[in-house]
Amino acid sequence: MTAEIIDGKKLAQLVLDEVAKAVVDMSRPPGLAVVLAGDDPASHVYVNGKAKRAKEVGFHAELKLLPADVSEVELLAVIDALNGRDEIDGILVQLPLPAHLNTLRIMAAVDPSKDVDGLHALNAGLLSQGAEGLIPCTPLGCMKLIKSVVPDLTGSHAVVIGSSNIVGKPVAALLLAEQATVTQAHIHTRDTQFICRGADILVSAVGKPGLVRGDWIKPRAVVIDVGTTRVRQPDGKMRTVGDVAFDEAVEVAGAITPVPGGVGPMTIACLMENTLRAARARNAHAAA
């Protein structure tokens, strides 16, 4: 038995096509500002990719590059200026931030209506209550991937490995909202292997290469691998791998996301979808 490979690139393109189609009928293009503090090479690749995709779907896109030693006051001033600009509908502050900056304080400064990464405490609270708000992009992408193979999650047992504010907690909330029974594992969880073996849906988001082995997986389970870690191969080349031992898991699971090409493309597509939603909501409020 070989699992179905869930093609994140294909599904992401469907989302992007719908966003681009919607933009054509708008009175003005949605505006997205991406803010990056620091010189981390991977972060530069990510933000450039996001800005490029935004322009491809017809958005107005801006990239704000700040030095690694930017002060918190300076970064907050940039965010405040973006909050006040009518042509900017979405603000994304690329994480992780340099260590001297307080991430929670920075995220709290973003206007919740422009928080297209869904990380403001207000949006997190709305999600926990099952209310309408902007949903973090990676968890939203995970749910789209899951529902592409299992449209109805009612009564399913879902296990989420990881409890971060960015992925673990929000994806667990989204699964619960779909009437799944959710178990959340983390670094202090005992018998994680045993817990995972009972999962109909298994989401791993910890960034530990090869953590989830094939014998952790229930036959025919849906496996969503959020982890992305760069590791050096014996030939000296770098390779991106996930949390799941793919070659083992693919022989057991019913469906599985690859790394790369699974969750990553969906994260960017959902950022575009969130920006479109934010623009529509702001336009409706302005017209009221």
Results as ranks from 00 to 15, higher is better:
Val24Pro: 00
Ala288Tyr: 04
Thr181Val: 06
His188Gln: 12
Val223Ala: 07
Leu174Gln: 11
Leu82Cys: 12
Gly168Gln: 10
Lys9Phe: 00
Cys137Ser: 05
Leu32Gln: 08
Leu63Lys: 13
Arg220Cys: 04
Ser148Trp: 00
Gln179Ala: 12
Ala77Asn: 09
Pro151Glu: 07
Val259Cys: 05
Ile79Lys: 09
Leu16Phe: 02
Lys144Glu: 15
Ala131Lys: 15
Val250Glu: 06
Ala124Pro: 07
Ile217His: 11
Leu119Arg: 07
Leu134Tyr: 07
Ala278Cys: 06
Arg277Ala: 15
Ile217Ser: 10
Asn83Met: 08
His188Thr: 11
Gly210Val: 01
Glu56Gly: 05
Leu75Asn: 04
Asp17Gly: 02
His157Trp: 01
Ser156Gly: 00
Asp117Ala: 05
Ala77His: 04
Asp235Ala: 09
Phe59Met: 14
Ser27Ala: 13
Ser163Asn: 12
Gly198Cys: 00
Pro30Gln: 13
Lys147Trp: 02
Gly264Ile: 02
Glu273Val: 01
Leu101Tyr: 10
Val159Gln: 08
Gln129Trp: 09
Leu122Glu: 15
Glu62Pro: 12
Ile256Pro: 10
Leu174Tyr: 09
His44Asp: 12
Met272Phe: 09
Gly162Asp: 07
Leu175Arg: 07
Ala12Arg: 03
Val182Asn: 13
Gln193Asn: 06
Met1Lys: 04
Gly133Arg: 05
Tyr46Trp: 04
Ala278Met: 03
Arg85Gln: 15
Gly168Thr: 05
Gly125His: 06
Ala3Thr: 05
Cys142Phe: 01
Ala172Asn: 04
Pro170Arg: 01
Cys196Tyr: 06
Gln94Arg: 06
Gln129Arg: 12
Gly118His: 03
Glu56Phe: 00
Gly38Cys: 06
Gly8Gln: 03
Ala177Met: 04
Asn123Val: 00
Arg190Cys: 05
Ser128Val: 07
Asp200Glu: 13
Leu76Val: 00
Ser43Gln: 08
Lys52Asp: 12
Val226Ser: 03
Asp115Phe: 06
Leu65Met: 12
Ala108Trp: 00
Leu11Pro: 03
Val160Ala: 11
Pro170Thr: 03
Ala81Tyr: 00
Ile5Lys: 14
Gly254Ser: 05
Val34Phe: 05
Lys208Tyr: 11
Asn274Met: 04
Ala124Thr: 00
Lys218Arg: 15
